[in-house]
Amino acid sequence: MDGGAAGSSPPPPEPPPLHPAIAPLSFLLGRWRGEGEGGFPTINSFRYGEELQFSHSGKPAIAYSQKTWKLTSGEPMHAESGYWRPKPDGSIEVVISQSTGLVEVQKGSYDAEQKIVTLQSELVGNAAKVKEITRVFKVADGNLSYVVQMATHLTSLQPHLKALLKKI
C-alpha cells in the first residue's frame, strides 16, 4: 500500500518560473484554437481547425506544438512541433519538425511591444519540393493570427496558410 487515501493524487506541480530570455514572448504562451484557410497555386483551397500551444519548462526556450483537422469531419490533417529560442537582441531561432517529415530551421526577429514575430527559413530539410518558408505571428485584440508563405521548386514565395486563433 502507498499509505495515501484511496483515489487521491498529488496536486499538479506549480509551473516553473519564466526564464528571463523568454519573458519578451510571454504573450504567446498558452493554448490557442481557431480556424484557418490554405491554398497554393498547385493545390485546391481548403479550410481547417487548428490548435497551437506555446509552453515553457523554465529553460530559455519555448516549446511549440500545432495540430490541424478538417472542419467537416474532425479528421486529423497536419501536425508540427519545435522550439523557439528568443535572444536578448530581438532575434529568434526556431526549429520545427512537421508530421510530413519536413524540417525547418528559421531565424527572424520579434517585437515584444507590437507582439509580432517574423521568421524566415534558413534551411528546409527533407523536402524535395519546398525551398523556402516564411511565417509571421501577431497577437492583437486577444487573438493570435499568422500568415505562412512558401516557395517550391515550381513557384516563387506565395501565400499558403493564414489563421485566426483565440486563447483557450
Rank of each mutant, 00 (worst) to 15 (best):
Pro20Gly: 08
Ala61Gln: 13
Lys70Phe: 14
Trp32Val: 02
Ile43Cys: 01
Gly39Asn: 02
Tyr48Met: 01
Val130Lys: 15
Lys138Trp: 05
Pro24Phe: 03
Lys115Asp: 07
Phe137Ala: 07
Ile22Thr: 13
Pro88Gly: 04
His78Glu: 01
Gly49Glu: 03
Leu165Ile: 00
Arg33His: 08
Ser8Gly: 03
Val139Thr: 01
Glu50Arg: 01
Glu104Arg: 04
Ser73His: 11
Leu29Ile: 12
Val136Leu: 10
Gly3Thr: 13
Leu144Asn: 02
Asn143Trp: 08
His153Asn: 15
Gly82Glu: 06
Gly38His: 00
Ser81Val: 05
Val103Phe: 11
Ile22Tyr: 15
Ala21Arg: 06
Phe27Asn: 01
Thr152Ile: 07
Glu113Asn: 13
Arg135Val: 05
Ser97Phe: 11
Val105Glu: 09
Glu93Leu: 12
Lys138Leu: 11
Glu104His: 10
Glu75Val: 10
Pro24Met: 03
Val136Tyr: 06
Glu75Trp: 08
Ala6His: 13
Pro10Tyr: 00
Leu28Ile: 09
Gln66Tyr: 09
Phe46Arg: 03
Phe54Cys: 08
Pro15Cys: 02
Phe27Thr: 02
Leu123Asp: 12
Ala140Pro: 04
Arg31Val: 09
Ser8Met: 10
Val136Ser: 08
Leu123Met: 14
Asn126Pro: 07
Gln114Lys: 12
Met150Pro: 12
Gly38Leu: 05
Thr42Leu: 12
Gly3Ile: 07
His153Val: 15
Ser97Val: 15
Tyr110Pro: 06
Met77Asn: 10
Thr134Ala: 12
Ile168Gln: 09
Pro41Gln: 04
Ile133Ala: 09
Trp84Lys: 08
Val136Gln: 12
Glu51Phe: 00
Thr68Ala: 02
Ser99Trp: 06
Ser73Thr: 15
Ser9Asn: 04
Met77Leu: 13
Ser97Pro: 04
Val105Ile: 13
Asp141Pro: 01
Gly125Glu: 04
Met150Lys: 09
Ser109Trp: 05
Asp2Asn: 14
Lys167Pro: 02
Gly38Trp: 02
Gln114Val: 03
Val103Tyr: 10
Trp69Asn: 14
Glu51Trp: 02
Gly101Gln: 06
Pro12Thr: 06
Ile96His: 01
Ser45Phe: 09
Leu52Tyr: 11
Gly4Ala: 11
Leu18Cys: 07
Thr42Asn: 07
His160Leu: 02
Leu123Gly: 09
Met150Tyr: 10
Ser145Arg: 05
Gln120Met: 07
Ser55Asp: 14
Pro76Leu: 00
Ser145Pro: 07
Ser156Asp: 09
Phe40Thr: 10
Leu164Gln: 15
Pro16Asn: 15
Val95Tyr: 05
Ile133Arg: 14
Trp84Gly: 11
Gln114Trp: 06
Pro10Leu: 11
Asp2Tyr: 07
Lys67Pro: 00
Gln120Tyr: 09
Ala127Gly: 09
Arg33Ser: 13
Lys162Asp: 07
Thr152Ser: 15
Ala163Tyr: 00
Ser9Arg: 08
Leu71Val: 12
Gly49Thr: 10
Glu14Phe: 03
Leu164Glu: 14
Gln114Ser: 07
Ser156Cys: 03
Val147Glu: 12
Pro76Phe: 06
Gln98His: 15
Ser57Trp: 03
Pro10His: 02
Gly34Lys: 01
Pro15Lys: 02
Gly125Phe: 04
Pro17Phe: 00
Pro41Leu: 04
Lys167Asn: 07
His78Cys: 06
Pro88Arg: 07
Gly3Ala: 13
Gln98Thr: 12
Thr118Glu: 10
